[in-house]
Nucleic acid binder design. Structure first.
Lengths: 251, 251
DNA sequence: CAGTAACGCGTACGTCATACGCAATAATAC
DNA sequence: GTATTATTGCGTATGACGTACGCGTTACTG
């Protein structure tokens, strides 16, 4: 009863990221800029992890007082959202007509963005894409599906499917990295520790498949980290291919 | 140089969840139990969201002092991990020989668990599965692939692929729900607000595909929320089917 | 030149996780 | 039966953190 009017309007900082704010004609010139604040946040996150990103820490990075940041960002959540947007950067613009090659290229580019900024996967998703780069990636993904017989309902589902997969793999990679950095082990030792841990917690009777997988040495080495990603991606693309070709042949 | 010995041993509370702790013979009888603490945490999260889960709030739920919880859990992170584990519950135990039906059933069960406890997707993933239910789900998933020609390396990849997808869809569903609860709108109005927002931020020239999708009314209604899930799941299963049948026919 | 809007930022407050220590308790060792 | 000791509940205190508020300053507008 208090505030029945649902808003759904965007924060000023997001509008600024879209370049929709005309700079005010009055008052002192800003000493900072939204971009510089976001870049400082990224610098801190890259160097010290997302946990180190506090308003105070970001301000220190810029040599300003903590509260000055709030002239550019209304809340920390907004800063994080814009940091992720900047971490994505612009999507690949290669002109690719083959949807499969295009989507694969797109997915790899997204994975590389997350590898460059592993903290990206730790920022909780706050809603559907509204920042410039997020929407640009979405647009590019949809464009790659242009030649396919997929419906307007299906195309976004495909993008969700692929980008969600990228995010998952990136998350697992980040988990592994954080685990062995925290315990300062080598990646191999971390995997090995996990193997021994699982074997000690479970019995072969109750967890036969898990034991079989662990004993097969599946988790022994982080062989080529790309192989894991490739496997799932190819399955997804195969599944899409099946649908697309079935539509194409039954015209 | 300080602490070169990497540990990789588990927290006491996790061991307790596995039933590996012999209760101490000395001292007063515990007034609480790990299970009760975890259940209280779940009750708070279900009723008021994950954001409301503070140690103080959980303690209040139990009628105890905040610090008493630390006799059962060494840190809040552990509590959250165990809350998620309990939210999963045991995996479906249906005996299904057809891998595709089995995996589908498994995926749907996981989605339902997340729908029951939507905050589950908001708990950041801290590492590979080590809690009882998490590992039980993993085991079940692997068991469903027993009859397939997939290798010991591929099977976990498949599980990661499917459960990651479930998690993504559950996250998107949670996003939507939180968005319209926050703005107290109906789901339709929330979707509509997003549509108008996107159209106002982007131009049809720069974002033609996005405009086409929005104008097609794709995001107008949350029709049957299950349809979205089904679409992606079937694509994944199709992709797996392609691999499995190719292996089967080429013996 | 007065008015005004936007700036940088110091202060203060509320929330939260959690380290520490103490008194009470209950089993064990003598 | 008494002393010992491990373990419990929990009060207190600390330090981090996000951010509301307001003040003095700046630079453009009327």
């Amino acid at each position: 009863m208090t505030d029945s009017g649902g808003d759904m309007s965007i924060p000023a900082s997001i509008a600024a990221a879209w370049g929709l704010t005309d700079r005010p004609s009055k008052g002192p010139k800003p000493g900072l800029s939204l971009q510089r604040v976001v870049q400082a946040g990224i610098a801190v996150a890259d160097a010290e992890g997302l946990g180190a990103v506090s308003m105070a820490r970001v301000a220190k990075e810029l040599g300003t007082a903590t509260m000055s940041l709030y002239r550019y960002v209304a809340a920390k959540d907004e800063l994080l959202l814009l940091m992720v947007d900047a971490a994505y950067g612009p999507p690949p613009t290669d002109v690719i007509t083959d949807w499969r090659k295009g989507l694969s290229n797109w997915a790899w580019a997204e994975l590389k963005a997350f590898r460059r900024h592993p903290w990206g996967v730790r920022v909780p998703i706050s809603g559907p894409p509204i920042t410039p780069n997020e929407l640009a990636w979405f647009e590019r993904g949809l464009a790659l599906l242009r030649g396919t017989p997929l419906t307007a309902t299906e195309k976004p589902s495909v993008i969700l499917l692929v980008s969600g997969y990228v995010r998952n793999v990136a998350t697992v990679e980040a988990d592994l990295r954080e685990a062995f950095e925290a315990a300062n082990l080598s990646p191999d030792d971390a995997l090995n520790g996990y193997n021994r841990l699982v074997l000690s917690l479970t019995t072969p009777e109750a967890f036969p498949e898990v034991h079989a997988v662990v004993n097969a040495g599946t988790f022994d080495a982080a062989d080529n980290p790309d192989d894991e990603f490739t496997f799932g991606l190819e399955r997804i693309l195969d599944g899409l291919d099946a649908l697309i070709t079935s539509r194409t042949t039954h015209g």
